[in-house]
Design a protein around this nucleic acid. Structure first.
Length: 879
DNA sequence: GAATGGACGTA
DNA sequence: CGTACGTCCATTCA
């Protein structure tokens, strides 16, 4: 057998190499935007893929220490005792590295009480016996003892881990003058400072080698120690026990019991999706293709790991009659998939657990299915909203929506960005949804047909139901599914927007922006791109020599807050012109994109992403109608372009006032806060009076705005620092304000503290209605990560409960409008506000329904206050 | 052309 | 060193 035919086993000490990478790579360049450090993970993986590529091993394993203690520290407590504490920035990276390796389908080995190098030694020994060519990669010199004709050590150079030196018996001999097996004897004599193992004083490598050559072995040397002359001889005799101990400790275990044999470590194809997921999380980009290349996987290949090939029932093409017959025979619950072509149904697939049918949409098919589709007969779908809309356009109003796998998957894991059915099939069934390769004109692999998609959907739904915990299933049934129906109708309805108003305003703003730009150029004697942060930095910090501001990843910030600060400390006409220019161009952009979004019906149809947030809120895209400007006088002109549509009489806006603070009062049961809401007094005036110890009438605007900022800040986990910055007051004054506040409203602080504590214990937060959000980072050793999680965990139950309440109000209003046969309809939801289009003669009824359903959406210890406005356009109807 | 970061609009 | 989003632009990278 030639060497090239011999299988190659690569075993790596993950801990020691990642640790070297940790110190070799600057942490600044390897931190995710969340604050997770990744330098150790990156450095290790970079070295590791180079190794895979260069050596192309057939079998691989990576071993890790489980902790700082092992059988060695038990036998000799001083062992490694002088090592400084492992930095938490490093230890936090180990689980991430292990996740990466598992995604790459690399076996990760750890064993309680055993060091990684012992695992390496065991595998090397077993591998050698089994006829492997073994490569050991470790940063610990003790592994030199493993080197034989069949075992090569790859040892990192002093700097970092990019260069590995190969140790064979020859190179060890050359470098140390003894065969590899004897290296530990040198080490025992010399000692190892980093392990806190003193050797014989004044004895270095040279002397050790000389003695060993002379006596043949350590044992003989120690027996005949009295033959050594001089001071070193005395030292040796004095430290003979140290040497024996060193030798005992640096002997690696070759018989550790492991759950695998070398043969089990055969390389498997990487789990491409898992690698993509975790690399995305760690923000590794350049590394991705390298990993794919080193593992012989095409990066474009979306193939998941070797999931069992579960074949869906064959797709059965049916006609209208056959479809009707299939439904008549089908079990109670059926999954439905409607493909959408130009907003209308293309094909429809139906599935039970055992059979599927499908057909292209036609009048006949519609006639055959309409009654069943409309009825309450339960249906399971994935991402139903778009399909509901398509059916609606065809004139079929879907009924009986019983489960949506998209919503369910999101409720279980609201943080996960990949919400495709394929991902759910992988995660919950461990199977692979057949997908046509989108990069190929003539795909080699057939995608799943609508009937098969429905079949997978049905099975995923069953698995998701099993995964529901707590009241999450009720959130789906009682809140999300009814909300979906309302959203579909809102999107279909759209909102009328006046192109004339928008275009006039846009031209005005364009001209203004040009003037401001020209003035700005004059102020600095040159023309720059005012939209380029890079060029602005040049102007501000080099040309104008203004003091450097808050650091960003690429330089120094030029955002509005920073510019306002600069204007205070170093007034310059350019600063104000720049701010005004930004505002004018921003407004114009918004107007332009709104204008472009007006459809042929004169209305804008946004899309609500029901799974678009981690808290339970909706988000809105194409265009986003939840961030239409409102704060400045100017920007309100944009809102005036949102008008009541033809056939309708007026717009109605309804918003919850201070809903988050009311939820805070409810959850904290703070008597002061509850009283504030029950007296009907202006909240901030009431709180201000308590905090500053004056009567409500004597609360000045300055006092009111301070407690207002404080109250809102509470909901977000604001610090004294943040409060002082926002209010532009001293930190000491902010601190004082906070302590006065909490002295009067102590239950609020107690609640906030205990809710984060509870989340740390449970691993998730919960809204009043039982919506959950996991927070694994509350246990993170990384302070930035942990504190970010703490603030988010503080906010999630409050923001999430508000979202729940608004959803309940929304779908109930929607349902009641329909039940009462009103033409009036809800158009928009902006978190705590609804915009309703009211038909002639329906104002009183509509207003009552909106007020009542928003008011009684939840029963809290404080009332839910609803403000209602009326007008021909959004601006006029607002307040 | 795709991906990223900065800036900024809303609740 | 304040939560939750989406969009635009300039810039960088492949």
């Amino acid at each position: 057998m030639t060497d090239s035919e011999k299988p190659t086993l690569l075993v790596v000490d993950g801990h020691s190499l990642a640790f070297r990478a940790f110190y070799a790579l600057p942490v600044d360049n390897f931190t995710t935007k969340d604050g997770q450090h990744t330098n150790g993970v990156y450095g290790f993986l970079s070295m590791f893929v180079n190794l895979l590529k260069a050596e192309n091993p057939s079998h691989v394993a990576v071993a890790f220490d489980t902790s700082r203690v092992s059988f060695r520290t038990r036998e000799y407590p001083e062992y490694k005792a002088t090592r400084s504490e492992t930095p938490p920035e490093f230890s936090g990276q180990i689980p991430l590295l292990q996740d990466c390796l598992r995604a790459m389908q690399i076996t990760v080995l750890t064993k309680e009480d055993i060091e990684a190098d012992d695992i390496l030694a065991t595998l090397a020994t077993q591998g050698e016996e089994a006829g492997f060519e073994v490569l050991v990669c470790s940063g610990d010199r003790d592994t030199i003892q493993l080197v034989t004709d069949d075992v090569t050590l790859l040892y990192p150079n002093v700097q970092g881990v990019s260069q590995l030196k190969r140790y064979t018996p020859e190179t060890v001999m050359e470098r140390y003058g003894v065969p590899p097996a004897q290296y530990p004897e040198i080490a025992a004599l010399v000692g190892e400072t980093s392990d806190n193992l003193p050797g014989v004083p004044k004895v270095g490598e040279k002397t050790a080698v000389k003695w060993l050559t002379q006596f043949g072995s350590l044992d003989v040397l120690l027996e005949r120690a009295d033959e050594i002359k001089g001071v070193v001889g005395g030292n040796l005799r004095e430290h003979i026990e140290d040497v024996r101990r060193n030798r005992a400790l640096n002997r690696l275990l070759r018989d550790v019991e492991l759950p695998v044999t070398p043969q089990d470590l055969v390389r498997r194809p990487i789990d491409a999706q898992a690698v993509r997921d975790i690399f995305a999380r760690l923000e590794f980009r350049a590394l991705l293709p390298r990993v794919f290349e080193a593992s012989g996987t095409d990066a474009a290949d979306s193939a998941s790991h070797d999931a069992p090939a579960v074949s869906a029932p064959p797709s059965v093409e049916a006609d209208a009659v056959a479809l009707a017959a299939w439904i008549a025979d089908a079990p109670e619950e059926i999954a439905v998939t409607v493909t959408i072509e130009n907003g209308r149904p293309g094909r429809i697939g139906l599935a039970s657990l055992t059979t599927t049918v499908e057909a292209s949409w036609s009048d006949d098919v519609q006639a055959a299915l309409a009654e069943w589709l409309t009825a309450d007969a339960p249906k399971v779908m994935h991402d139903a909203k778009g399909q509901v809309k398509a059916l609606q356009r065809a004139g079929v109003r879907l009924g009986g929506l019983a489960f949506d796998t998209l919503l369910a998957g999101w409720l279980i894991r609201p943080s996960f960005p990949d919400k495709t059915l394929a991902h759910l099939v992988d995660r919950y069934l461990g199977e692979k949804l057949p997908e046509a390769d989108p990069t190929q004109l003539v795909p080699e692999t057939e995608g799943a047909t609508p009937g098969q998609v429905a079949w997978f959907t049905l099975r995923v739904a069953a698995a998701l139901r099993e995964s529901f915990e707590g009241r999450v299933g009720e959130i789906l049934t009682d809140i999300e599914l009814p909300t979906l129906r309302a959203l579909a109708d809102m999107e279909l309805a759209g909102v009328a927007v006046s192109h004339e108003k928008l275009s006039g305003f846009s031209a005005e703003l364009g001209a203004r922006a040009e003037r401001l730009a020209a003035d700005a150029y004059l102020a600095i004697d040159r023309e720059v791109n005012l939209g380029s942060p890079k060029q602005l930095q040049e102007v501000l910090f080099e040309q104008l020599q203004l003091p450097k501001t808050r650091k960003t990843k690429t330089g120094y910030s030029t955002d509005a807050a920073v510019l306002a600060d600069l204007q205070d400390s170093h007034p310059h006409p350019f600063l104000d012109l720049l701010l005004q220019h930004r505002e004018a161009t921003k407004m114009r952009q918004i107007i332009e994109s709104l204008d472009a979004a007006i459809g042929s019906d004169g209305r804008i149809h946004t899309t609500y992403l029901q799974t678009g947030s981690q808290t339970g809120r909706l988000s809105s895209t194409d265009p986003n109608l939840q961030n239409i400007p409102v704060r400045t006088e100017e920007s309100r002109r944009i809102r005036s372009a949102f008008e009541v549509g033809s056939g309708y009489e007026t717009l109605l806006t309804a918003d919850y006032s201070q809903i988050e603070m009311r939820i805070m009062a409810h959850l904290s049961e703070d008597p002061g806060l509850i009283e504030a809401f029950n007296t009907g007094e202006d909240l901030h005036r009431f709180v201000g009076a308590r905090v500053f110890g004056v009567t409500p009438e004597d609360v000045t605007p300055a006092m009111r705005s301070k407690v207002k900022a404080m109250s809102y800040g509470l909901v977000y986990g604001l610090s004294a620092f943040g409060l002082s910055k926002q209010l532009r007051i001293d930190q000491s004054e902010a601190k004082q304000l906070m302590s006065e506040y909490f002295a009067r409203f102590g239950a609020v602080r107690d609640y906030l503290r205990s809710s984060v504590e509870q989340a740390r214990i449970d691993g998730y937060t919960e809204t009043i209605f039982g919506r959950r959000r996991p927070f694994p980072d509350l246990a993170s050793p990384n302070r930035v990560l942990r504190e970010n999680a703490e603030r988010a965990a503080l906010n999630a139950p409050i923001q999430g409960s508000a979202a729940d309440i608004m959803k309940i109000a929304l779908f109930r209003i929607h349902e009641e409008f329909r039940a009462q046969g009103l033409a009036s309809r809800v158009l928009l939801q902006i978190h705590d506000e609804l915009v309703v289009e009211v038909a002639a003669g329906e104002w009183d009824t509509a207003e009552r329904i909106v007020r009542e359903r928003m008011g009684d959406a939840a029963t809290l210890t404080v009332p839910l206050d609803v403000q209602i406005g009326r007008g021909p356009n959004w601006e006029a109807a607002g307040h």
